[in-house]
């Protein structure tokens, strides 16, 4: 029911958007976003995510209610804003997706292969359970300051690793994240590029993911954003919850720390 409605809305939004796509100014999308106000089709995905969290699943037929996102088992409110963080039970730093994988395998008895089967939607899909869960979890931190933990040595090392990866050039095109994201006022074609090495740029980017992508009609997560940037850099496929994606997200979160979360955002 929700999903059918979302697809209906998506079709209308895509139509509106394509009419504006060739407009010369970049401010049009901001106007459009302002026009929608607080209305974001992601709300339906958030509802789905909440339902999924409380629904028993997997071989152990358990819900995720006992999942510890960093603030204790079952505490979801405010948890996203403090990720990525160090988890003693796995002795590593995890983002929301790595942590959900941990909970799905430990609590519900799913295999890692099952969790990794299809974490993110392909174009035209209705959205995955992981995307819905992340949308709901992020929404539970909306308005709270980005405050990734940097107390543990591994958390600080993860930030430093993230910075090194940000500048790592490789592949046939010699691209790194920095190729597009270390200067202000730049764009690719008409797409503006945040300068992720600054507080402001990182805060704008980090606070708005996960986001409802109008052109795709689904909620995309920060993990997906990292994977897709790597695809555009001509790199191989970035694995969900991997050390590299956690490090890059930590780099962004720490650079943007203090700014309020505003996810799920709304993007073209």
């Amino acid at each position: 029911m929700h999903k059918g409605f979302i697809r209906g809305i998506s079709a209308v939004l895509i139509g509106l958007w394509s009419a504006m796509l060739f407009s010369e100014t970049d401010g049009v999308f901001d106007e459009y976003r302002a026009m929608l106000g607080d209305d974001n089709p992601a709300i339906f995905v958030i509802f789905d995510g909440e339902e999924i969290w409380f629904t028993p699943a997997g071989p152990k037929s358990a819900s995720l209610e006992q999942c510890d996102l960093g603030l204790g088992p079952g505490v979801v409110e405010g948890a996203y804003a403090q990720l990525p963080r160090y988890f003693a039970d796995v002795d590593r730093v995890q983002d929301v997706e790595a942590r959900l994988e941990h909970c799905m395998t430990q609590l519900q008895g799913l295999t890692p292969a099952e969790v990794h089967g299809k974490p993110y939607s392909l174009r035209g899909d209705l959205g995955t359970e992981l995307e819905a869960l992340v949308a709901w979890i992020a929404d539970q931190s909306s308005g709270l300051a980005i405050a990734p933990m940097q107390a543990h040595a591994k958390e600080r090392a993860t930030y430093e690793l993230g910075e090194r990866l940000f500048y790592y050039r490789a592949g046939p095109h010699d691209f790194s994240c920095a190729t597009c994201h270390e200067q202000a006022g730049r764009r690719i074609r008409l797409q503006t590029l945040p300068n992720l090495t600054t507080h402001q740029g990182a805060a704008e980017a980090y606070s708005s993911w996960p986001a409802y992508r109008i052109s795709q009609g689904i909620v995309r997560t920060m993990g997906w954003r990292m994977r897709d940037c790597m695809r555009q850099q001509r790199m191989p496929e970035l694995i969900m919850g991997s050390e590299a994606t956690v490090a890059l997200q930590t780099y962004l979160a720490v650079n943007g720390a203090g700014a309020p979360m505003a996810a799920p955002g709304l993007k073209r």
Binding site: L165, Y168, A170, G171, R234, L238, I239, E243, T245
Partner: peptide, 24 residues
Amino acid sequence: DEAYNVLLDSMKDKNFVTVERLEQ
């Protein structure tokens, strides 16, 4: 080498694009 090793562990071949591309 650390950045390279982390990337190698964090990525996998996809279609015709292999992890060899991570070598600098």
